[in-house]
Design a protein around this nucleic acid. Structure first.
Lengths: 133, 133
DNA sequence: AATAATTCCTATTGATTTACTAGGATTTAA
DNA sequence: TTAAATCCTAGTAAATCAATAGGAATTATT
């Protein structure tokens, strides 16, 4: 469950937008500058967030992005899953991204990792952008 | 905190050795075959585990590896840190592998990840090879 | 109508990491 | 002397990651 910079940047962008909810559409350049994110890289992330329906956009001059949901309706779990996939320490123990891995046959070990997955998942599911903005 | 296969294989090897503690030195080929690990890859991992003093070795014919500590004195945390580094979701929130990351300035967000780090860390610190073998 | 500012979209790049493999040197039991 | 093992480092192929490039489409402003 190591976060990539995409997840980190994605969260930072959402937090920024949550803090400026009532200011209409905000451009990538503004967000990038405010949060210290390479603008062209952020562009990709915004597109992904938009396609996942966390954001709404407006094209053209005076265009930009705004939240498509209330901050308290966007969980950290959803955002991190979008950019990084499984929250679990191994995919063999993931609910959403199951895949076989070497430790799978070791039931006791798997149980430990499942417990961790549950805790991480619960925590990130419960925590929303509103909580951290 | 996504486990690499090195960590997974490393844990599997230690579990095997814990289950065969009283059988003297056991060769890489035997462990590799039993646990389904590419032998030359396992060799590297064993070497690392030896250098970290989890294992003892004997060279030459009839040689091999055995645990250098009791299974209940080897925590999952130590093994995973050896192969994968930080247990924390971001290094900015890691005690043992601190490094600056983008979310660092967001205190609320960092707090969430610290809580996760603490839970993961505690759980893996408390759980030993004896518990999972 | 022209221009500037923006999102949209895909491809590409360079660096790093990951999962291995290769192979020689050394040691030791048979 | 030989076979079986660890020791050790280098190399490699593929994947992932972080970031850049650049053109197309859209829209407000001049």
């Amino acid at each position: 469950m190591k976060l990539t910079t995409r997840s980190e940047y994605g969260l930072l962008a959402l937090i920024y937008l949550a803090r400026h909810q009532d200011e209409g559409f905000i451009s990538i350049d503004v967000i990038a500058k405010a949060q210290g994110i390479p603008p062209k890289f952020l562009e990709q992330l915004m597109l992904a967030l938009k396609r996942a329906h966390f954001l709404r956009s407006a094209k053209g001059q005076k265009g930009g992005y705004q939240l498509a949901k209330k901050p308290n309706q966007i969980s950290l779990a959803e955002v991190i899953r979008l950019f990084d996939g499984a929250l679990a320490p191994t995919e063999s123990v993931s609910e959403n991204f199951y895949e076989s891995t070497p430790i799978e046959k070791e039931k006791r070990l798997s149980k430990v990792f499942k417990e961790i997955r549950d805790h991480v998942s619960n925590k990130l599911e419960k925590t929303t952008i509103a909580d951290v903005a």
